[in-house]
């Protein structure tokens, strides 16, 4: 067994205040164009952070790196004590179970109902049937879908589908919640409801990162805002706002 590799993968103090740490991280795709360049980003446990920027600024690449869907080209990336540059493939599932993820296009299993979509996340972490029967209804109640547990995704509105995705992301009590354009397909009313839910989740101790284009929401919520432009962090402000291009 490679003990040294394990040591490298797990940080000594995984309950440090800093939960996400990127030092000089660059990511270049095979075409050679850099998607991220020398990015330094440090996020503490319990923070609420907006990642903003135009298309092609590197926001999605950043999310993919944090999920370890992509690997960095150079630098150091550490999430919840996992060194993502060196983590072994077989350890990735365990790492991801501590991260809740919400996408713009919801990504629900279309052939399963609301209950099954949420329960699915619990199956993956091998919860017992008894625990699943207890946890799923309670999380559905939190996101306001208690009465729709039998509905299929196609029978729900965009806002409701995003709530199901949120319930699925939260049911395993993640340490970090990544939301990639969670309001991108929603009307203003539903967008605000989803953001309120994210804020509540954050108030309960979960670190929340939201990638968004929604200027109104970013400006109104007065949270930390990290702005990316062409793969570089151009601004990182506490209680910041949406910075216009140009």
């Amino acid at each position: 067994m490679d003990v040294s590799a394990n040591r490298r993968t797990k940080r000594t103090a995984s309950d440090n205040k800093e939960i996400i740490s990127l030092n000089n991280v660059s990511k270049a795709y095979s075409t050679g164009a850099p998607a991220l360049k020398d990015v330094d980003l440090h996020i503490n446990r319990g923070e609420f952070v907006f990642i903003v920027g135009d298309s092609g600024s590197g926001k999605s690449t950043l999310i993919k790196l944090l999920l370890r869907e992509l690997t960095i080209t150079s630098g150091d990336i550490n999430v919840m004590g996992y060194d993502l540059a060196r983590i072994k493939h077989r350890k990735i599932p365990k790492f991801r179970r501590n991260i809740g993820i919400v996408f713009q296009d919801f990504r629900l299993l279309k052939d399963r109902n609301v209950y099954e979509n949420v329960a699915f996340a619990q199956r993956i972490v091998q919860k017992s049937n008894k625990e699943i029967r207890k946890n799923v209804p309670s999380i559905l109640a939190i996101v306001g879908l208690a009465g729709k547990y039998k509905a299929r995704p196609r029978q729900l509105s965009g806002g409701e589908q995003q709530r199901v995705a949120l319930a699925r992301a939260l049911v395993n009590n993640p340490t970090i919640l990544l939301a990639d354009e969670p309001t991108g397909n929603l009307d203003p009313k539903n967008s605000w409801e989803i953001m309120k839910l994210l804020e509540q989740i954050n108030e309960n101790g979960t670190t929340v990162l939201v990638v968004t284009h929604n200027r109104e929401i970013v400006n109104a919520m007065q949270k930390r805002v990290v702005t990316l432009k062409k793969g570089v962090i151009v601004s990182d402000e506490e209680k910041g706002g949406y910075i216009d291009e140009d």
Binding site: R90, P93, R97, I99, I101, R107, L108, L109, I124, N172
Partner: peptide, 16 residues
């Protein structure tokens, strides 16, 4: 494809 991707994002092992 999509179904497998979702499973992997949530943290399913290859075996699962």
């Amino acid at each position: 494809k999509e179904e497998i991707n979702i499973m992997k994002y949530i943290g399913a092992t290859d075996f699962f």
